[in-house]
Design a protein around this nucleic acid. Structure first.
Lengths: 111, 111
DNA sequence: CAAATAATTAACACTTGCGTTAAATAACAA
DNA sequence: TTGTTATTTAACGCAAGTGTTAATTATTTG
C-alpha cells in the first residue's frame, strides 16, 4: 500500500470522508463531538479516527481526558498534488472547469 | 457509498491506482496489455477494471475481440474539484505549494 | 481514595475485497 | 466448422474492514 492508496482507502468510507470534511469545516474537534454526530458507537468512531490518523490524514492533540482531532493540510495537499500532476490529462477535456479550479474555486460552474 | 467515496475506494488498491496512472500516461490500452503489466491473473485484472468502470473512473470501448480502456477525465476532475472545494483549508498551511499546484504543476518544489 | 467521564482496546460476528483456477462468451482465422 | 485468441464470469478460499458490547486506561472531581 503506497502513501496515496492508503490516503484514498482512508477516504473510501462515507463516515470517514464526512469526518474529514467536518473537521476541515469546523476545525479541531474532540472525539466525543464526532461520536455525537454519527449513528455509530464510540468505539466505531474511535477506530475510524485511528484509520485516518494512521493514513496521515488527521493528527491528535491531547487535552486532559479529551483527544482533539484535526485534518493535516499536508494530506490534502498530497491529493491535490496528485490530481495536478495529471492535470495535462484531464484539463480542457470537458469544459472550462480546469481554469475554474485553478483560479477561482468558489465560483459555480457556468452553464 | 457516495460518488466520491466510491471513487476513492476504486483508487485505494495499488494495482488499480497504477492502472489508472498507466492509462493516463499511455492513453487507451486493451485489457491484455494491462494483464501483461501486472503479476496477477487475467481474471483479477478484469475485475479491477470492472471496479474502476463501475466507479466511473474508466470507460470501455470494444474493437473486435479487444476491449480498450481509458480514464474518464470527469472522474479526475471530480477529485480535483473536491480538493479545490476545500482549498481554503489547506492552502498556505505549509509552504507555497498551493501556488505551485495552481499555476505550475511541472515545477519541482524549491528547497 | 472512590466515582465519574472520555476515550481506547479487546473479542467477536458478519460482510466485503482480492486472489486463484475452471468454465463460458465472443470474434477471428484456417 | 473447428480451433485460437481475447476477455469475462463463476465458484471458491482467505484476509481485511466495520459494526457491536464488554473491559481497560487515563484524567478529573468529590
Amino acid at each position: 500500500m503506497t502513501d496515496l492508496t492508503q490516503t484514498f482507502a482512508a477516504l473510501s468510507d462515507p463516515t470517514r470522508l464526512s469526518m474529514v470534511e467536518k473537521l476541515m469545516a469546523e476545525g479541531d474537534l474532540p472525539a466525543g463531538e464526532l461520536v455525537a454526530g454519527y449513528p455509530i458507537s464510540a468505539p466505531a468512531v474511535s477506530r475510524h479516527l485511528k484509520v485516518l490518523r494512521e493514513a496521515g490524514l488527521i493528527r491528535q492533540r491531547a487535552a486532559g481526558t479529551h483527544r482533539y482531532y484535526a485534518v493535516r493540510p499536508e494530506a490534502m495537499q498530497t491529493i491535490a498534488r496528485w490530481t495536478m500532476d495529471h492535470r495535462s490529462f484531464w484539463e480542457g477535456s470537458l469544459n472550462r472547469l480546469d481554469s475554474l479550479l485553478a483560479l477561482n474555486p468558489e465560483t459555480e460552474d457556468t452553464p
